[in-house]
């Protein structure tokens, strides 16, 4: 049995719902914050996620940092040595989806040469009539980037756990792979 620890960085434009996603995940769906507050520094959400079919678990340290400049300028420090990435966009906001590649690049630049497991999360599926980014379009891009793809509605509390469970699973798989590498050394 092992408990892994992973620094998870939450990235994406401001107002896509990063903070709400993290808070709902923390409280198991108990809280939906109706009033928007701009995250200016960083919030830390810590939660342990079991890895299915193993006795193992992953403690996620979710760094929820500002998506809006100028606050995003200190990200280089806050994002140092990430283990996994949760990339969020708003399905009603085409620009927030387009900017994902910029966020992904910035996250990957934090640890060049090291693989960074990640998920792409399209939030606000409850606003169906205003949808601007089709699922297929997001899926195609995510696939090309090696990201697992999810859609959520944090407002309706739908599917908000799946992305984090997926990250825990990916990180656990990575650990297993590295242990095999260590074993093969001698």
């Amino acid at each position: 049995m092992v408990k892994l620890a992973a620094k998870c960085i939450l990235a994406g434009d401001s107002t896509v719902g990063k903070t709400t996603l993290a808070q709902i995940f923390r409280s198991d769906g108990a809280q939906f914050q109706k009033n928007y507050t701009l995250t200016t520094g960083v919030d830390l959400v810590v939660k342990t996620v079991p890895v299915p079919d193993t006795g193992d678990s992953v403690e996620l340290f979710i760094f929820d940092s500002a998506g809006k400049e100028p606050f995003s300028e200190m990200l280089d420090k806050l994002w140092e040595s990430p283990n996994v990435l949760c990339l969020v966009y708003d399905v009603t906001n085409e620009q927030s989806f387009q900017n994902c590649s910029k966020w992904l690049e910035k996250a990957r630049a934090q640890s060049p040469g090291v693989s960074l497991p990640g998920v792409l999360v399209g939030n606000k599926t409850d606003l169906a009539s205003r949808r601007a980014v089709e699922s297929a379009q997001a899926r195609a891009w995510a696939l090309g980037q090696g990201l697992e793809c999810f859609e959520t509605s944090v407002k309706e509390m739908e599917n908000y756990e799946a992305p984090f469970h997926c990250l825990a699973k990916q990180f656990h798989r990575l650990y297993r792979e590295k242990v095999e590498v260590f074993q093969a050394l001698v």
């Binding site: 092992v2 620890a5 992973a6 620094k7 403690e59 340290f61 283990n83 242990v179 260590f182």
Partner: peptide, 26 residues
């Protein structure tokens, strides 16, 4: 860090085939 399968004692057992692993973050 502690993984039951790769405990810290492995570092001082005189056998380089056994090892201790870190389990995430530094």
């Amino acid at each position: 860090s502690s993984d039951e399968k790769h405990p810290p004692e492995n570092m001082i057992d005189g056998n380089p085939e056994t090892f201790w692993t870190t389990t995430g973050m530094f």
